[in-house]
Simulated scan of single mutants.
Amino acid sequence: MTRKKGPKIVVIGGGTGLPVILKELHQRNAEITAIVTVADDGGSSGIIRDYVNVVPPGDIRNVMVALSDIAPEFKDIFQYRFRSQDKFLAGHAIGNLIIAALSEMRGGIDPAIRELSEMLQVEGHVYPASAQPLVLHAKFTDGTLLAGEAEITAAHKDIKEVWVGNNPWSENKKPHAVPEALQAIEEADEIILGPGSLFTSILPNLMIEDIGRAVLKAKAEIVYICNIMTQKGETINFTDAEHVRTLNRHLGQNFVDTVLVNTEIVPESYMDFNRYDEVSKQVVHDFKGLREQGARVISDNFLLLRDGGAFHDGQKVVDELMNVCSNPIKKRD
């Protein structure tokens, strides 16, 4: 279910950070399009993609719930994850199974998402970055190579670059984007990257050649929401400028227009590093390095402390995103 709204905002990424922003954007006067990574091969999503040959459904599920207008109790059912004692279904979310079933019933992920969007009363557009599940590849600074998002992250080595390829059973030689996603990028007033894992949630989308090309050609303001904490196996010791430098390097030019960075200190004593074991330490600021890359820097207290972890405060971030949309530095026709 979609309604014509105000500014056209495209959000690109995956993981747990994306729904936080989408849920708040959903409350605003915006026409939202979410473009979601399909390179996840861990957990329930990875198991389902291997058995059913469907794009990993987990990130799509979370995004659809964030944009859904159905009653909370129905969202809870859709999001319910079976307990480990259930063995056969252990770890699977009901929504993942429904997405996989509809993909099989309707002959692909696109008709499945359209039908499920109607059922869930989704306000906005949700597109997988590609209709095919993709494999993430990485080259590390020591020259070694690995394939598979879960293995890349688990290696806990410094990543030099990533790229994506089709899974072994795909008939296509090169990954291609969903056409509707490319159209949304072309028509957008604002394109938001993140928050999320730099190498495994954001870059896999941009490494699909036609998505990367569309972003570079976009007339929209391109905003990167920098992570609050560094991530083991991905961005250990990265400054905010190094996050942006990595994005720019992968697309071959400085394309990020505006960067949102949190300046509030995360109390180390608050963090539950056992629960958030992939988190390392707070991202260090390098405003000079950001500006040298041509980026406008918007710094503020965007921090939300919750459940022993450091998260973005969706309301504060989206307040700023809407301000940026009203006052872009990138001129549109």
Score class of each variant (00 low, 15 high):
R291N: 11
G95L: 15
M1P: 13
I152E: 13
D277N: 09
T230Q: 02
Q79C: 10
T144V: 12
V244T: 00
F302V: 03
A131N: 12
I225P: 00
L145E: 15
P111V: 08
S299F: 04
V36C: 06
I185G: 03
N62H: 14
N237A: 13
C325P: 02
Q79N: 06
G108P: 07
D210M: 04
D110M: 13
G194W: 11
Y276M: 14
H26V: 04
A310Y: 09
E187C: 01
H176F: 13
T200E: 09
Y127V: 12
A177T: 05
K331W: 08
L303E: 02
M322V: 10
G6F: 14
N62S: 06
F140K: 12
G212K: 03
A39Y: 05
K316E: 04
E115M: 12
M64T: 04
E234Y: 05
D41A: 08
L25H: 00
D50I: 00
F199C: 10
D189Y: 06
I202M: 10
V279M: 15
L89K: 12
G289Y: 07
P111L: 12
A66E: 04
N62L: 13
L193V: 01
L97H: 06
M119E: 06
E149F: 07
R49W: 06
E104L: 09
G107I: 10
F287R: 05
R106M: 15
G46V: 13
I265Y: 09
D210Q: 05
K174V: 15
L290R: 08
R291Q: 15
A112E: 03
I152D: 06
E118Q: 08
A220W: 11
E24M: 07
V178K: 02
A214E: 00
R249K: 10
